[in-house]
């Protein structure tokens, strides 16, 4: 389980997160929905120990990410695309990650196949399409067979087949008892996979709970989103 409690982050004068709290439960897909610059990535970066919060805590199964002895076996994450150096092949990127956890070469081949990257051979990451980068990031997230998946805008750049693959992947993961936290600004994508929803805007959680409850009283998730975030009412709304 992922628990975020009272997370606040300020950069000098600017507050990017204020008192953000929510949970992501096992066996469920939690959609983390908000317009660009709402604080989704900042929250996930703190959860993964990349940035420090000004106040509050973010825990993975009750522990800070930085204290996990073998983090890739607990949490599979994807932020900022693939994270692969442009000179490396898909396999080359996964191999050093595997080394860090004593994961076998066979598992590297498995996740490459699962992500549809088995045929990329000697092609270097610098020449990958956006969709291939996302697939490589997802392959890396799956590498350690983790219970928890934390994915930041995973559908960006994926073709329709890729989006469908991603949807099956996260649904299967939750069905097997795993925890999935998936951020997005694309409502249709979230509506198609999420059990629970956390809506964030301007660094604050506007609503959180099961999808049906958050969208109750609205015709669509889109209507609920605009009503909750106050965005889209004119110029300067959702970008």
């Amino acid at each position: 389980m992922l628990s975020i409690d009272g997370l606040t982050k300020t950069y000098r004068e600017r507050t990017v997160l204020s008192e953000v709290s929510f949970r992501a439960e096992p066996g469920r897909v939690t959609g983390f929905l908000g317009p660009n610059a709402a604080g989704k990535s900042s929250t996930l970066r703190i959860l993964l120990g990349l940035d420090r919060p000004t106040a509050g805590v973010a825990l993975v199964g009750g522990r800070p990410y930085r204290s996990l002895p073998e983090p890739l076996r607990v949490v599979g994450s994807m932020l900022d695309g693939s994270g692969a150096h442009r000179s490396r092949t898909a396999r080359g990127h996964l191999r050093w990650l595997a080394r860090s956890h004593g994961i076998s070469g066979r598992r590297v081949t498995e996740v490459l196949e699962r992500a549809g990257l088995a045929d990329t051979g000697r092609l270097r990451a610098g020449r990958f399409s956006l969709g291939m980068r996302q697939r490589l990031g997802l392959a890396a997230a799956l590498l350690g067979e983790p219970d928890v998946l934390v994915l930041d805008e995973p559908a960006n750049g994926l073709d329709p087949e890729g989006v469908r693959w991603l949807r099956c992947l996260v649904r299967d993961h939750a069905a097997a008892g795993g925890t999935v936290l998936l951020s997005s600004h694309a409502m249709s994508e979230v509506a198609a996979v999420a059990d629970d929803l956390v809506v964030i805007a301007a660094g604050r959680v506007m609503a959180a709970g099961p999808l049906a409850r958050v969208t109750a009283g609205f015709a669509t998730l889109e209507d609920a989103f605009f009503a909750l975030t106050g965005a889209g009412s004119g110029i300067g709304g959702v970008r």
Partner: peptide, 18 residues
């Protein structure tokens, strides 16, 4: 090299947070 392009540092610190 950790900070060019796709910022490998994210993957590095996800694997080894210390």
């Amino acid at each position: 090299s950790e900070f060019t392009g796709e910022r490998q540092i994210t993957a590095t610190l996800a694997a080894v947070p210390d």
